[in-house]
Amino acid sequence: MTTDAQVTPAPADAAQRGRLRAGLDRAVQGRALPIATVSLAIVLLWYALAVWLNADLQINRFERADQSWTFGELVLATWAQDRPMLPAPHQIVAELNKTVFQTGITSVRSLVYHSWVTLSSTLAGFAIGTLLGILLAVGIVHARALEKSLLPWIISSQTVPILAIAPMIVVVLGAIGLNGLIPKAVISMYLCFFPVAIGMVKGLRAPDPLQMDLMRTYSASRWQTFWMLRWPSSLPFLFASLKVAIAISLVGAIVAELPTGAQAGLGARMLAGSYYGQTIQIWSALVAASVLAASLVGVVALGERWAHRRMGAQP
């Protein structure tokens, strides 16, 4: 009897179980579940690390205050220090809430204000760098001499550590009266023209020989071949490069704020935090920077999807 019932479940039950199964499959195959699992693991690990890293200091403090403590008290205390070695996630969230939502965006204590300062030089550097990268690639693809003379320099430019060259760029540009946004944008540009140039050289050469021959049979001009064949072929490569470029452009802007004693910007915020041991401030600036980077890459990805659809790509 019982075995029979187990072997043949009621049809409605089976259908429901099927639906549940399908829903679960979707969740597993989709991105939601894996991302949630990993995020949860990271948060748990983070809390554990916070206890471990902050415990010594906390035990010291308890001892100095001649206070007896239990393990539970220790754990809670390590998650609530003013200047912890590693702040707990909820401390960072509280700081972010305070500096993003509770502070006017024009205040120097507002993280939105600092983000905007960094974002403006990121975008300026990204725009100039992208343009420079595309122009270099166009030159390289069309003139052998430029490939031989420019490409080695383009590659070696990226072997110089940006931390070493950034202060010099700032000093030199400062000497000719350029301050504020421009030196930072120049450093962003210095980093982000590279992936664009390399990606576009590959992209502009992407048309296959048949597609190029076709243009030749029509005696198309170089200009026509460029606009009707090379440029559209290169767009997938351009967008892949742009995603890298915008992320490192942000890194460039932040790095540029470190050696210059900048008063504003996410880099300045991190630097100030490290001067005064304000670890929570550093971490919240870090979170703001990564949210900013993710959104910028997301915007580029949206542009990519738009271009993809306009070019009739296979969905």
Binding site: D208, L210, Q211, L214, M228, P232, G312
Partner: peptide, 11 residues
């Protein structure tokens, strides 16, 4: 000229 492959531009 008609090539071995159609060589249509996919975009």
């Amino acid at each position: 000229y008609v090539f071995q492959a159609a060589a249509l531009y996919p975009w």
